[in-house]
């Protein structure tokens, strides 16, 4: 009888140990992660979506005949967010333009938010009387962009019962600023699905 009770106690203790071990109880664990890891924490637009979209667009642009030997100057307009959720489209635009710039195939004019500061700096150099005239930068020397890169991201979200489906589509276009002709366009689609478990955990 005692032997049986001992066995039962040991079994209960072991089960408790196992459950607590698997549940990982005992506070928060912080660790560094790989930023390039596939992230599927929630259905919302995430880092993997951003990276996948940027990569596809950059690859498509880099192999386009527009980016041959000459390095065209491009003005980047921020991608418009037409989805129902908050998406930092500036981050998408920044990743695309940084990758393109790093390739050495394209040059970019300063983004619109920097233009004001550039103008202020030019005015300062000309009017403050503090800058050596030999190094003073002149008005009217900026290079006009050849193309404008613009686009939008849209989404369709559907839910039925425990299932939810999100479809994202990003479209980018490159227009010749002088002629208004759209010289390049591409789109990338992403579909993600989630299903809640029966217990709702």
């Amino acid at each position: 009888m005692i032997r049986k009770r001992r066995f039962f106690l040991a079994f209960a203790l072991s089960a408790l140990l196992a459950v607590s071990g698997l549940a990982g109880c005992g506070g928060t664990t912080v660790r560094y992660g790989d930023p390039g890891e596939v992230e599927t924490l929630t259905l919302e637009f995430g880092s993997t979506d951003l990276q996948t979209i940027a990569e596809k667009m950059v690859q498509s642009l880099l192999v386009s005949p527009l980016f041959g030997d000459r390095r065209p100057v491009v003005y980047v307009s921020q991608v418009k967010n037409k989805t129902a959720e908050h998406i930092d489209t500036k981050s998408i635009t920044d990743t695309i333009s940084t990758a393109l710039l790093k390739s050495g195939k394209v040059r970019f004019t300063a983004a619109s938010e920097i233009n004001k500061e550039l103008l202020e700096q030019l005015e300062y150099q000309e009017n403050a009387g503090l800058v050596d005239p030999k190094t003073q930068k002149q008005f009217g020397k900026q290079i006009g962009a050849d193309y404008m890169l613009y686009g939008e991201i849209t989404s369709i979200t559907k839910a039925a019962g425990r299932k939810k489906d999100v479809y994202y589509k990003i479209t980018l276009k490159l227009a010749d600023i002088e002629t208004g002709i759209i010289e390049w366009a591409d789109e990338k689609e992403i579909r993600k699905g989630a299903q809640k478990s029966l217990l709702g955990m």
Partner: peptide, 21 residues
Amino acid sequence: VGEHWTPVIINGNEVKSLNGV
């Protein structure tokens, strides 16, 4: 820039192209 793992779903007996530039 933004090097990452790309997720792919491949159907039965399907051929998928993995493209890189």
